[in-house]
Simulated scan of single mutants.
Amino acid sequence: MSAVESIDHIAVGHDLARKTGVNLDKARPKTRRMWEARGLAVIALARGDLDEATKIMAPFTTKRRCPPPKLFPKQPKRMKQPSKDTLRDWLAVSAAEIERLRALELANEDRIKSARAALEGEAL
């Protein structure tokens, strides 16, 4: 008996389910059997027997109307968030721009005040 054959397919199936986020404690019996079959198929693939893995998964792929489940389902795609360094850089650039605009606003207010004072001085 090789090391691959001594592995428990139920444990492998449950481990695969846990890693993909499926809680088999609350799952239906058919779902549990499917994940256990996936564990058995993984063991067959480890032996290099693709035909056996396909036979094992056949009952779970032919009776469905929706697309068949994959032996190794893909993780859901997540939105890519920029790295913390990139976010810090954007924050620094934004803060510098706000400071520049605030200084420009204050300078414009000073010009407006001096222009009003000059106009009031001419009017008197």
Rank of each mutant, 00 (worst) to 15 (best):
R100W: 11
C66E: 10
A37F: 08
P29V: 07
R116E: 05
E105N: 11
D15L: 12
A107P: 14
S83T: 15
E122C: 01
H9F: 05
E5A: 14
K63S: 12
S94R: 11
P29S: 13
V42W: 04
E120L: 07
G121F: 06
S2H: 10
G121I: 01
D49T: 01
D15F: 12
T61V: 11
V22P: 03
R102C: 04
E105C: 07
A103Y: 05
K80C: 04
A11F: 09
A95R: 12
R64Q: 03
P68S: 10
R38S: 08
P29E: 14
D110R: 14
K113F: 01
D15V: 08
K74Q: 00
G13Y: 04
T86R: 14
K77H: 00
E5Y: 09
D8V: 00
K70T: 03
K30W: 14
D25N: 12
I43M: 10
S6W: 01
R102F: 05
A96M: 09
A11H: 12
R32S: 08
S2T: 12
K55Y: 04
E105I: 04
D51F: 07
E52M: 12
R78T: 08
K80Q: 10
S83A: 09
V12G: 05
R28C: 10
V42F: 07
S2N: 12
I56A: 00
A92Q: 15
R64H: 01
L106V: 04
R38V: 07
R38F: 07
A17P: 08
E99S: 15
A115T: 14
G48F: 09
L50T: 11
E5P: 02
A117S: 13
K77S: 00
L45S: 09
R65L: 12
N23C: 14
E99I: 13
I56Y: 02
E105M: 07
R28A: 15
C66D: 09
M57Y: 05
K55P: 00
E97P: 03
W35N: 07
H14T: 08
Q75S: 03
M1K: 01
V12L: 13
P59Q: 08
L104G: 11
V42H: 09
V4M: 04
A117R: 14
S83C: 06
L91C: 13
V12P: 06
P76T: 00
S114Q: 15
E99N: 15
P69W: 02
N23K: 13
A17Q: 07
E120G: 00
S2Y: 08
A11S: 13
V4T: 09
K84G: 00
L40K: 15
A58S: 14
L101Y: 12
P73K: 06
W90T: 03
P29C: 06
R88I: 05
E122R: 10
D85E: 15
L71N: 00
S83D: 11
S94I: 02
R32W: 09
A58H: 15
Q75I: 01
S2P: 11
L45A: 08
M34F: 15
T86H: 11
R28G: 12
L40H: 11
K84R: 07
E97D: 15
T62V: 03
P82C: 05
D89V: 07
R28W: 11
A3K: 10
A123W: 05
I7D: 02
E109N: 12
L119P: 00
H14I: 02
D110K: 12
P73S: 05
P29H: 11
K113E: 05
G121H: 08
R65G: 15
F60P: 03
